[in-house]
């Protein structure tokens, strides 16, 4: 499952104008150089990569989207649920 984290970091970097070298798991999403529309594209990219559906709503602040690590955990959970 560790490559889940790497794949998500790759997706984040791909959607950032000037991605940092490393993105630690505890980084809050709000500190990354991404805007709301970028986030919609990132979520789509993650869904497409892992074949899952993430019930993300840009109007709500949820724990699952606080940090990079929490996104990774959520994706792992959804991938596992998918069997």
């Amino acid at each position: 499952m560790e490559d889940v984290a790497q794949k998500i970091i790759d997706i984040l970097k791909k959607n950032m104008k000037e991605p940092p070298e490393t993105i630690p798991m505890e980084t809050p999403l709000s500190e990354l150089d991404i805007e709301s529309l970028d986030l919609a594209v990132i979520v789509f990219d993650i869904e497409d990569t892992f074949g899952i559906e993430i019930p993300y709503n840009a109007n709500e602040e949820v724990e699952d989207f606080k940090t990079v690590g929490s996104v990774v955990d959520k994706v792992k959970e959804l991938v596992a649920a998918n069997g």
């Binding site: 993300y56 709503n57 840009a58 109007n59």
Partner: peptide
């Protein structure tokens, strides 16, 4: 849905 702006 992809825009993530709809309320369920």
């Amino acid at each position: 849905q992809g825009m993530r702006v709809l309320s369920p």
